[in-house]
Design a protein around this nucleic acid. Structure first.
Lengths: 352, 352
DNA sequence: ACGCCGTCGGAAAACGGTTTCTCATCCCGG
DNA sequence: CCGGGATGAGAAACCGTTTTCCGACGGCGT
């Protein structure tokens, strides 16, 4: 049962051909499947292949124009739980469809992103999926537009996931979730409980994801006819530590509020700890809500009310959509829904 | 300042050569860097390259024997926080060293793992990093040994990360952390607080990571001269839900214990919620500890005492080590330390 | 007996690069 | 005026596949 491994080693199709006493073309044909080849020859070839433990070089196949192209997934932070779920969706769908999946973290650095995209162009990747917000400046649009064009010209397609879309006509696929809508619904829920002074622990001011959530916060207020106090609008980033720091600062500063909305569950998680350290009970003294619905949200104490974002589905959809398109297809836009998950961290404000 | 993009498109080195009025060899040399080429020619070529927005096909380069090989990272569950940190380490170190990084999730399925390894062999990947425990059966060893050999023969090297190592002589690099030692130290800590009946929420019985932690649990007991009650040794898996279910079962069943050790922080997280649902205070009524030190551990309430595992470093080391080796190098073994992180979830048992 | 067609397999050209060989200049000293 | 070493650049071979093109061979109908 054990394989004759006398002769293993990095070997080519010609080695197989030699061992089977046929030409390289024949080996290729046997392996390829369709071309008519006599069963005797076929047997000899498959035998040789097995003996040598031969696997065709995928890169050479790629050059010859066969073989499935790779696809690339680019995010800011691999360790973020929400990004991890997108990555999961992308990877699962990619392997389901038989594609390899490259991954790259940019650490929010534009230069790294650019460099990586260039490498993907060289790899002739099927698609490059860029995820996560960005500063939506004119410079961003121009730069990303150039990326999209150059990828398209190299035969790859750019996918923007939760990123600001470019002007119309760019060869780009955009997959988004209803970011602002989720925030709106969440804040509306908190307002409906009777809260009127809601602290917002936001992200970076020029980060589009942060901006969208902030817009939702504001829109929900004005829909309800309440004027939000600008002093309650804080900025940091999407990390746990930011939430902790911001919350601690707000407490020390003596800000008045009865509820806190964190821009992400991570932020909420840090804020929760800070509240606890400040001796405050959640939701008894102050209500708290997050965004993203990461798996841990329900194991926090109290279980965190938050907005569910279909991250995995977002990833799956990104690859499914892009693999159907020709690289030069015009821009298209998909929007997935979000919804509030009500748990235990939001309650009506205390009477005073 | 804008690029003349009249002529972009998937174009080859020959297109560039034609436009610059030189031969393909010359273009290659200009791009390659070292070969002497007159500055006039060089200028013309670089100009043409820029005009066409040309990038050499990385796959073709690979076939020709230049270009940096890819490396692959295989894990069970991409979304697991500890795995995510390893992935982060691997990816960071890979890009630092200029390598691309493929990622693949097996969902614990041996067939998927095998298929993927075969693809990596075809890709002529520099290394395949397999992470996460496995059932350490004879069949496992034989299979993995075969994988190692076949990868080595294709010029790739296998890295086992937190996985049972094979017999000596296998062409494998093994990077581990002190799994059992961490569990030992943690349980010793809990015993030192005075606990004598410690519930263990373990993983799958044949999973080596789970086994190691279980061994640590037992060893710490016997070092202290206490006989652990076998009824306190439960099995599940490494998920949050498993912890929740197991804990709920133990409570319902009326098991007696004053402390709980969970096989992972995720398990602890589920267990914590179950304890709370059961009206028990942690650590007032029962102490709780986890394993992995995921970032969330300190935002649980109470902050979770756990064992820190240097996951990111593990990943970085895996890459750094393997890229220095020739594929056929004999087996080598690295062991990283772990340590207990004392937080608030463990206290002395209640007087009774 | 002969032409034709279908089946099978080899030689050679592609794929997009790099690298080795080879050759034409140029510049210099003798 | 001529030999010779740099210097620069093209032609051709190569990397490992696939695919096109073509030839050989056997069977069949007329």
């Amino acid at each position: 049962m054990t394989r004759k491994s006398e002769d293993v080693g990095r070997n080519t199709i010609r080695d197989v051909a030699a061992r089977a006493g046929v030409s390289a073309s024949t080996v290729s044909r046997v392996l390829g499947g369709v071309y008519p080849v006599s069963s005797a020859t076929r047997a000899r070839v498959t035998r040789a292949v097995r003996d040598l433990d031969y696997v065709a070089d995928a890169r050479a196949k790629a050059v010859a124009g066969v073989g499935t192209p790779t696809l690339a997934f680019v995010l800011e932070e691999i360790t973020g739980p929400s990004f991890a779920h997108m990555a999961y969706g992308v990877e699962r769908e990619a392997t389901r469809l038989g594609h390899l999946c490259l991954v790259h973290g940019t650490e929010g650095d534009v230069r790294q992103e650019l460099e990586f995209v260039e490498m993907m162009r060289a790899q002739r990747a099927a698609a490059v999926i860029l995820v996560g917000g960005a500063a939506d400046t004119a410079e961003y649009r121009e730069r990303t537009r150039r990326i999209a064009d150059s990828l398209a010209s190299a035969g790859s397609r750019l996918v923007l996931c939760g990123r600001p879309s470019l002007g119309p006509g760019a060869p780009v696929t955009v997959i988004e979730y209803d970011n602002e809508g989720g925030a709106y619904a969440l804040v509306a829920h908190v307002l409906a409980q009777g809260h009127r002074r809601i602290l917002f622990l936001g992200g970076k001011p020029d980060h589009t994801t942060a901006q969208g959530r902030e817009r939702g916060y504001l829109a929900a207020h004005s829909a309800r006819g309440v004027e939000p106090d600008p002093a309650l609008l804080l900025h940091g980033d999407f990390t746990r530590d930011s939430g902790h720091r911001l919350m601690r600062g707000a407490l020390k500063q003596g800000l008045e509020f009865t509820a806190v909305i964190a821009a992400t569950d991570m932020v909420a998680s840090g804020a929760l700890t800070a509240l606890r350290e400040g001796g405050l009970d959640v939701p008894g003294d102050v209500s708290l809500a997050g965004y993203d619905d990461i798996p841990f949200a329900r194991d926090l104490y109290p279980a965190l009310t938050t907005v569910h974002v279909p991250y995995e589905e977002l990833g799956r959809l990104a690859v499914r959509t892009v693999l159907g398109r020709t690289p030069e297809a015009p821009d298209e836009h998909l929007l997935l829904g979000t919804h509030v998950v009500v748990r235990d961290s939001v309650a009506p404000p205390k009477e005073r």
